[in-house]
Write a protein that binds this DNA or RNA. Sequence first.
DNA 1: TTTATTTGTTAGACAAGTTTAACAAATACA
DNA 2: TGTATTTGTTAAACTTGTCTAACAAATAAA
Lengths: 169, 169
Amino acid sequence: MRIESDREKLSSNMEDYLEAIALIEMDKGVARVKDISRLMKVKTPSVTSALNVLANKGLVEHERYGYAELTENGKRIAHDVLKRHKMLTKFLSSILKIDPQVAAGDACKMEHVLSPQTCERLTMFVEFVGAGSEIDRPLWLKGFDHYLKTGKRVECKNKQALKKVKGEK
Amino acid sequence: MRIESDREKLSSNMEDYLEAIALIEMDKGVARVKDISRLMKVKTPSVTSALNVLANKGLVEHERYGYAELTENGKRIAHDVLKRHKMLTKFLSSILKIDPQVAAGDACKMEHVLSPQTCERLTMFVEFVGAGSEIDRPLWLKGFDHYLKTGKRVECKNKQALKKVKGEK
DNA sequence: TTTATTTGTTAGACAAGTTTAACAAATACA
DNA sequence: TGTATTTGTTAAACTTGTCTAACAAATAAA
């Protein structure tokens, strides 16, 4: 028999609900069933049912016909997920140059399945690379861009090519 | 009403079964329920049931009490999954230096969720980086290793530090 | 070739998450 | 204040994949 605040691993789905609620709270202050259902692309009964599950785990508060609110615990988890989401999005879009939509989708999947170790390393990697702007983009990464376009590695002995890679787009 | 060889997207689970069967076929020529169940860490009835699903989709052939064999279609999918798996493992273990066990686990999850675009880019990235051996490891990547260890970027102006990063471990 | 062991299948239950249909509460507005 | 509209909930069914228990086929071995 188990008591209250279970520390069991949340399912991807429930993590997604927490994340959605957090986003809506950030946007509008409070989250309603309708908003969640719209954001998650599920019907409202699914939301009601998810809220019951999450409330049982002490991750949201929800009174019938009222707003849903994350508890402290819920917030903590949601923010962890969001942090992973952001990091992954950045990795995909600014390092690998994946299209924003696709990157968002992939980040949404990956955020629930990566081990803490991988998340941590990837975070360090993103941090290490920087690459927020084109200017910050390290030279080797521009080399990768070139490799993507042409399938060929930049010959660094050739000053001409090197300049080209360094310089533009 | 739908006919035979549906081109619907396979679930992660079913992809995993195909992958397992492919691995066993490669190892022993033919795959038996027992082998699959062992590799997948599920009980045999789950395998029987999965084989029925896959047979319906035309991805395996399986006669009662006999061997399971991938069809051409099944093989194609299984090999795609395996290719992604290998690529991801390489990315995680040889670029990010994730522990083998953890890398394997993460690759196993990621292989089912990444978009084709991300798979392709990541493949290119792994290819670009090389990094099969410590010797091939590009200098910037050694810089990342150093960043992981110390949290500090290598100052390339400092010849001493540079040499250290280039040289050892 | 009969018996024992291993392997595979069926049937039935369960868990998580989803849906539709019907209904109830809250809100808006006349 | 009374009626409509919007929003939320309940109940019941379905899906996917799992399991246990009981049974059936195949293989090994006596």
